[in-house]
Design a protein around this nucleic acid. Structure first.
Lengths: 145, 145
DNA sequence: ACAATAAAAGACAAAAAACTCTTTTATTAT
DNA sequence: ATAATAAAAGAGTTTTTTGTCTTTTATTGT
């Protein structure tokens, strides 16, 4: 098990892929995206449908249609994608799975975990969807394998 | 989804519980443990059987039997429990789920994630199973709810 | 208007994780 | 030796996650 669900991993990879491919206009189809990140096509389609409904990614149907990001969306932090897919519990939940874990009622590792989660949150809030377009173009960063 | 699997969360809570209850000798039965941490009894039994086979927790059958920790085991780091249950991929895996993510072939968030994982590992290696016995006794830290 | 295209939606199927119940085995006390 | 106890083991079921296939709807170019 990773930090994120598989669904969320696909979502993040897809989001980076779409950003890179549509930074200069145009759209990418689901087949290209799925191929480009190595994910099951129809499964990814569901994920992107959901992100589209939530307004995180843009899409149009029909010929020359596909997914893309507008300027504003490219500035969105990764945290928004993660929260949309996996929920916010990843930033707040207890490390030992306790429902009512809090500073007043802490599990043994409450403090240490809080720090970790805060670091994750800081990181995901500081990274934007469009941030790696160039490095992906240059082949310095990868989304497959 | 948490950082750990549900199975692992139960394991960690159980381990803390057993440590506290057997710090001064004796054993705890599975019913007490499951009740004490709020987990399904038979499911937890499986988990502890596995930890027992791996030598992380000690157990004896029969009357006055149950689970316990010997002195040495109390000094074990939490990382050992986590690795036994969830595997080591939690310390090494790619944040975006890529198989071949590495410094030479990095995903976009490779560096940031590595730091996070290292912090998790440091934390889990520095905390021991028996470390919270006193605070649990005093009712300062909790394993339920 | 019509055909082609591509996302959206719906209904499943497979696999994995989480959970339950029953039987067996080992240990202890009498 | 025997009965009681408690973990170990086995054989399931349920739920969640992941993945597939088909049909529908919206858009575009001719």
């Amino acid at each position: 098990m990773g930090v994120f669900s598989k669904t969320c991993e696909y979502a993040l990879r897809a989001v980076f892929f779409i950003a890179q491919r549509t930074a200069n206009g145009g759209r990418v189809g689901i087949k290209d995206i799925a191929g480009g990140i190595g994910s099951p096509e129809h499964f990814l389609a569901k994920i992107l449908q959901d992100l589209s409904k939530r307004g995180i990614v843009q899409s149009v149907k029909g010929p020359n249609g596909g997914f893309y990001f507008d300027k504003k969306s490219l500035e969105r932090p990764l945290a928004d994608v993660v929260e949309a897919v996996d929920g916010s519990s990843i930033f707040t939940g207890c490390g030992l799975g306790l429902e009512e874990c809090s500073a007043a009622n802490p599990c043994p590792i409450h403090d240490e975990f809080m720090e970790l989660r805060n670091q994750l949150q800081r990181m995901l809030k500081s990274i934007t969807i469009g941030q790696f377009n160039e490095e992906l173009n240059l082949g310095i960063k990868f989304l497959k394998r």
